[in-house]
């Protein structure tokens, strides 16, 4: 009884979840989860029937996708955590045969989420697990998984233009990935801004526009104001942070240096005493 109701719920979720408002979707999902609990399939076990497992997994997947569409990062992370035992079990050969569901898509999204949150350590742990089970080339070749991996590599290198292109020209594997583009854009923009501050003494407005992937010069001026850059005669002058403080610093440094030397030498003397 309950499983039939579950199936209809799932069908409804699948067919209309993109159109449905988020609160409604969550309501549907929580009802589905209650049903799962009744069927004792909220968490998977090797003994539960494969059909039910697949059903439960699909529900969670829909939940994950719905939360991503509505930019609910913590919710998505929760769904991923719930899905993980299902995927593990599946690879045990227990249930569902080779039907992977939306596994790669979800994992790819999760990787991207980690990337936007700057959790590189977790990103690589996850990646290592993927590489461990299926060979890295295969993972990179995957449409959903390869995308975040490439992005990460470019971000680390500093090839921001490639990241930009990957996000724009319809290269995004599916609409859910597009959600992250916005976050990533602002992220790389601030990255570029901070590198430009150090790298250029000054920049003309026009080239800044293309550098920062902004649409108009007005936006550039706006952006410059938020970063505290001076704009004069169509050129941006970056605050010369290093130069200004350098003069005052040298004196301080000198003092600090001699203090350090004195301190160290005293330390050596004390230690020598204990040895001799």
């Amino acid at each position: 009884m309950a499983d039939r109701e579950l199936a209809t719920l799932l069908a409804r979720l699948k067919s209309s979840s993109a159109a449905l408002p988020y609160p409604e979707t969550t309501a549907l999902l929580s009802r589905a989860k209650l049903l799962l609990l009744q069927l004792n399939a909220l968490t998977p076990s090797p003994t539960s029937p494969p059909a039910l497992l697949a059903l439960a997994r699909d529900i969670y997947e829909q939940g994950a996708l719905a939360s991503i569409r509505n930019r609910d990062a913590p919710g998505f992370t929760r769904y991923v955590a719930q899905l993980r035992p299902f995927y593990e079990l599946q690879r045990h050969g227990g249930g569902g045969g080779r039907d992977d569901g939306e596994r790669n898509k979800i994992t790819g999204l999760y990787l991207l989420l980690l990337l936007t949150q700057g959790l590189y350590g977790e990103f690589h742990s996850e990646l290592e697990a993927l590489a461990g089970e299926g060979g890295l080339d295969e993972v990179e070749g995957d449409r959903y998984l390869g995308y975040p991996i490439r992005l990460e590599r470019w971000l680390m290198e500093g090839s921001y233009d490639r990241v930009w292109k990957a996000m724009k020209r319809g290269e995004v594997p599916c609409e859910e990935f597009g959600v992250f583009s916005e976050i990533l854009t602002s992220q790389i923009r601030s990255e570029i801004a901070s590198s430009s501050e150090r790298a250029y003494p000054s920049l003309p407005l026009a080239s800044t526009k293309s550098l920062l992937f902004l649409d108009s010069e007005g936006a550039v001026v706006e952006f410059a104001r938020t970063r505290g850059w001076a704009v004069r005669d169509g050129t941006i002058y970056f605050p010369d942070a290093a130069g200004a403080s350098a003069a005052g610093e040298t004196a301080d440094k000198e003092k600090e240096l001699s203090l350090m030397v004195v301190e160290n030498t005293l330390g050596y003397a004390r230690q020598l005493e204990t040895i001799v």
Binding site: G158, D161, R162, S196, R198, A199, Y200, P204, L211
Partner: peptide, 23 residues
């Protein structure tokens, strides 16, 4: 373009001491 971004990042990360001239 890529080279420019990469060099700018390297400068920010303190890998090299240099400046870029865009024009």
């Amino acid at each position: 373009e890529t080279a420019e971004y990469i060099v700018a990042k390297a400068i920010r990360d303190g890998v090299i001491e240099a400046t870029l001239d865009r024009e």
